[in-house]
């Protein structure tokens, strides 16, 4: 356990390496979202100068993190200078996901969950803008995550089990395998993509390059986060501190139980094989009680301002 009982939930942990890690999360008191950067020696508390929850982040390179969150906000953080810059998507909707292959290929997604409305924005370097021919799925589902795989393929997941693929031929919507939300998405190659979600019961889906299939173990609780390690191995985590591990084509519950009962929203395996998980009480708005778990060589818990 690196951190626990943080006021705001920790919603995303990601990095360029085990010595360059960014954690972002909720803004429970309106004074700004929690944001922490680890340089391999210590944690530094970051002050973005914004308010509202930060739901997701993604490293575009060694010195360029992008983050999205409440009110359509999009932030850029430069670790070498400590500078934040903020921009605004053409929406006040909550943005839940961001992914990009470069600064001229940045996807941000979100929407209004209560109204089942989604947004997908693409930034080609001049700011996020709507697609000239966007998918119809956004008229009935908020979009939670975007993830690129291969050279030109980007996947999107959202409410109502939405599974969308964007490639050179445009958007393709795959048949939903669940009526419930899909909240987590990750893949490392075009035939190894995972999507997770569910409500009271969880779901783990896998794409083999042609079709999606349901790999959910019996009785699995809601899953929220997923990470593909290689062609076979993957991790998923979610409700009530539950985590599952895929090896040799089989998902099994991770034992011993993780040292938390809060919900896990993000999982990441770093370049050294260290496993990071972030979460909190995700059913609350704003989410609270942040935790950060790490499995790997001992690291510092020191936080400096």
């Amino acid at each position: 356990m690196v951190f626990e009982h943080q006021p705001g939930a920790l919603l995303r942990v990601i990095g360029n390496s085990s010595k360059d890690v960014l954690v972002v999360g909720a803004d429970v008191d309106g004074q700004g979202p929690i944001a922490l950067h680890f340089d391999g020696t210590r944690w530094k508390r970051l002050h973005s100068g914004t308010t509202g929850d930060l739901w997701w982040s993604f490293p575009l390179g060694a010195d360029d993190y992008r983050m999205v969150g409440d009110g359509g906000q999009i932030l850029r953080y430069t670790p070498s200078t400590g500078a934040f810059s903020a921009s605004q998507a053409p929406t006040t909707d909550r943005l839940f996901g961001v992914w990009g292959s470069s600064a001229t290929d940045l996807w941000t997604v979100g929407g209004q969950t209560a109204r089942n409305r989604g947004v997908i924005w693409h930034d080609e370097g001049s700011g996020p803008s709507a697609l000239s021919s966007g998918p119809s799925a956004t008229s009935s589902a908020a979009i939670f995550k975007a993830q690129g795989v291969g050279s030109d393929t980007v996947w999107f997941v959202g409410q109502r089990g939405v599974l969308l693929r964007k490639d050179s031929s445009g958007f393709t919507q795959f048949p939903a395998l669940t009526p419930y939300p899909l909240m987590g998405l990750h893949g490392i190659q075009t035939d190894r993509v995972y999507a997770v979600g569910g409500v009271a019961g969880g779901v783990i889906l896998r794409f083999d390059g042609t079709t999606w299939s349901d790999e959910s173990p019996m009785g699995i609780p809601q899953m929220i986060a997923v990470w593909a390690v290689d062609g076979d191995e993957a991790w998923a985590a979610g409700f009530n501190g539950n985590a599952f591990h895929r090896k040799d084509g089989v998902w099994t519950k991770h034992e011993p139980r993780l040292p938390t009962f809060v919900d896990l929203h993000s999982i990441w395996v770093d370049d050294q094989g260290g496993i990071w998980m972030a979460g909190g009480r995700l059913s609350l708005d704003p989410p609270t009680d942040g935790v950060l778990l790490y499995y790997g060589p001992p690291i510092s818990k020191e936080v400096v301002e």
């Binding site: 909550r94 969950t113 209560a114 409410q159 009526p179 419930y180 939300p181 009271a200």
Partner: peptide, 15 residues
């Protein structure tokens, strides 16, 4: 009836 931050909207979005 409270709306959670993520979920299904009318279906599985409130508690």
């Amino acid at each position: 009836l409270l709306a959670g931050p993520q979920g299904g909207g009318r279906n599985y979005g409130y508690n």
